[in-house]
C-alpha cells in the first residue's frame, strides 16, 4: 500500500520545552490511526503538524509524497486545501451559512463551489434533508456530520479528526463513529485524536503519546473481529 503520511524524528520545541520529541509514524493509504494520550501529551501539536497548521522544529513530514516540514505558510496553505480534510471537536461551522453553504465553503477555497456535489456530500452523511438549515437549527451530531461532509468534499488524501466525538452525547457519538467506520470501509485514510479508548480501539493502529514522546499507553477495549496493533507504531 502507498504511504500517505510518513513522520520521521518529529520534535516541536517552545523555548526549552518540548511539546513533541522524536516522534515517528508511517500511515498507509486506507489506514485508520488513532492518536491517544493524556492532556498535554502533544496530540494536538502532532495533529497540527500533520494538517499543515504548524511546522516541526526538527524532523521530516512526508504528506502524499510532498515534504512539508519546512514549507512556508503560503505553500502549507496550498497543501492543506489540496490534501487535508479537517474534522474539529467544536465542529466550527460558520453560523450564518446553511449546512450546504458550509460544505461549499471548502470547495470555494479549493476550486469552485458546486452545490450539487455539496448536496451529495451531505447525502453521504445522511443530512441531505437538512441542507438549508443553519448550524443553530442542527443538533451537535448533525453539525459534526456537516463538518465531516465539508472535510470530504474536496476528496482529500487524508482526514484528520481532532476529538470528533468529544462534544457529542452517546447517541450522536454512535452515529458519528459509524460514519467514520463507513469512511474507513470506503478506503479513506483517517487519523483521529481521541481520549476515548473504545473509539481509539476501532482504529487499525494506535499511537500513544506521553509528555510529547511515544509511549505504551493503556490499551482500550477492542471490538471483536477488528484489527488493532495496540502498540505504538515504530515503523519509521
Amino acid at each position: 500500500m502507498k504511504d500517505i503520511l510518513v513522520l520521521n524524528g518529529i520534535s516541536k520545541q517552545y523555548g526549552e520545552v518540548y511539546a513533541l520529541k522524536d516522534v515517528g509514524l508511517r500511515v498507509t493509504e486506507g489506514q485508520w490511526v488513532s492518536i491517544m494520550g493524556p492532556s498535554g501529551s502533544g496530540k494536538s501539536t502532532l495533529l497540527n503538524i500533520m494538517s499543515c497548521l504548524d511546522r516541526p522544529t526538527t524532523g521530516s513530514v512526508l504528506l502524499d509524497g510532498v515534504e512539508i516540514a519546512h514549507l512556508d505558510e503560503r505553500a502549507l496553505t496550498v497543501i492543506r486545501r489540496e490534501k487535508v480534510g479537517l474534522v474539529f471537536q467544536q465542529f466550527h461551522l460558520i453560523p450564518h451559512l446553511t449546512a450546504v453553504e458550509n460544505v461549499m465553503l471548502a470547495q470555494y477555497y479549493h476550486s469552485l463551489p458546486d452545490e450539487k456535489e455539496a448536496l451529495q456530500a451531505l447525502e453521504r452523511v445522511g443530512l441531505r434533508h437538512r441542507a438549508r438549515h443553519l448550524p443553530s437549527q442542527l443538533s451537535g451530531g448533525e453539525q459534526q456530520r456537516v463538518c465531516i461532509a465539508r472535510a470530504l468534499i474536496n476528496e482529500p488524501a487524508i482526514i484528520l479528526a481532532d476529538e470528533p466525538t468529544g462534544n457529542l452525547d452517546a447517541a450522536n457519538e454512535e452515529t458519528v463513529v459509524e460514519l467514520f467506520r463507513e469512511l474507513h470501509r470506503a478506503g479513506h485514510t483517517i487519523i483521529m485524536v481521541t481520549h476515548d479508548p473504545e473509539i481509539g480501539a476501532l482504529a487499525d493502529r494506535r499511537l500513544f503519546l506521553e509528555h510529547g514522546r511515544e509511549g505504551r499507553g493503556q490499551p482500550g477495549r477492542r471490538p471483536s473481529g477488528q484489527r488493532n496493533d495496540r502498540e505504538p507504531d515504530r515503523n519509521r
Binding site: S51, L53, R74, T77, V78, R80, R81, E82, L86, H92, I94, L105, A106, Y109, H110, R150
Partner: peptide, 16 residues
C-alpha cells in the same frame, strides 16, 4: 476571528 481562522484552516490565502 474564529471564522477567519477556520477559513485559513480550510485553505484560504491571506489575499483571498
Amino acid at each position: 476571528r474564529l471564522e477567519m481562522g477556520l477559513k485559513k484552516a480550510l485553505g484560504a490565502s491571506m489575499r483571498e
